[in-house]
Write a protein that binds this DNA or RNA. Sequence first.
DNA 1: TCTGGGGTCCTAGGACCC
DNA 2: TCTGGGGTCCTAGGACCC
Length: 344
Amino acid sequence: MSTKDWILHLDLDSFMASVEILRHPELRDRPVIVGGNGDPTVPRTVVATASYAAREHGVHSGMPMRTALRKSPDAVFLPSDMPAYEAASAQVMDTLRRFPITLEIWGLDEAFIGARTDDPFELARTLQKAVLDETGLTCSIGIGDNKHQAKLAAQFQKPAGISQLTSDQWPAVMGPRPTSALWGIGAKTTTKLADMGLHTVADLAAADPRELARRFGPTNGPWLRYLALGKGEAGVTDTPWVPRGHSHETTFTTDLTDAAAIREHVTAFARQLAGEAADEGRDVIRVTVKVRFAPFITQTRQTKLDTPTTDPDPIQAAALAALDRFTLDRAVRLLGVGVEYANR
DNA sequence: TCTGGGGTCCTAGGACCC
DNA sequence: TCTGGGGTCCTAGGACCC
């Protein structure tokens, strides 16, 4: 094999549940479900991560906790413990950084790796072993010519697998698969594509780009075909990600109707976000309030600040001004506030 | 399956200006 | 005074991801 640049995608297996099993070894091989406050009878909470034993019972992330309880009544339910997951993630990333690779962190449980090597499988095995030895966690690794290929390949043999998907292999491996197999095509786009008679990746790759642009817009239309051709971004950077903003939201167990209580929640979120902006040294330029009315109708209102700031008073005022532009005539299921940062 | 929370990016339409 | 076209900014919503 000749030396060349490869992109690897590393995906920690059932990450949050695996961290919990490390802390509680007696849970090994039991169905473990992490989500909400750990009480699966609370309505409007969902599964964050399910262990592989729980997945065998049909439990998956995003599923309502009450459904998960029905499917896996003997499972161990645990609350999300973000500080513990952040610490475990940092340990994994520190382990990876010791290798001569470029590490691009992509959330708590994923990373892209750029490496110049003649044997990417050997590199993948070495990384898997180092992560397992130092943290006790298993991961799956995909190898490709770009991020899209590597990302998909990592899903081919989970858990603890290594798979490769290159441009040469793409038409044979991905062509017959449904368009929903692509990274970036979800349920809505799958339906719209099916309406156009485009069902497989090969169908989409052969579709008329002008027709796609007409249906999906000038950027998204051509991008869909680009995905189907197996193309993708090939650059990996270890420059840390700079967040565009932050938000907080909460779904109430029972709907809120009291106007004063609604204002209090929005105020508290706005001031919390102002504090976080100050901690990060970032100025806020826009504040968005999100209201989800019963049964499930979501609206947003936003206010641009005259002057970028971390001062909680104008940020709170902007949030309340946005809130005032809603017609609060129905019960409120969710309230959220988000801030957008000025460029840095 | 009665549907979380935290993100990113794109689109469409209106306001406004020249 | 019956009305063009382009550019930019802003807002609201939607789609997708983990």
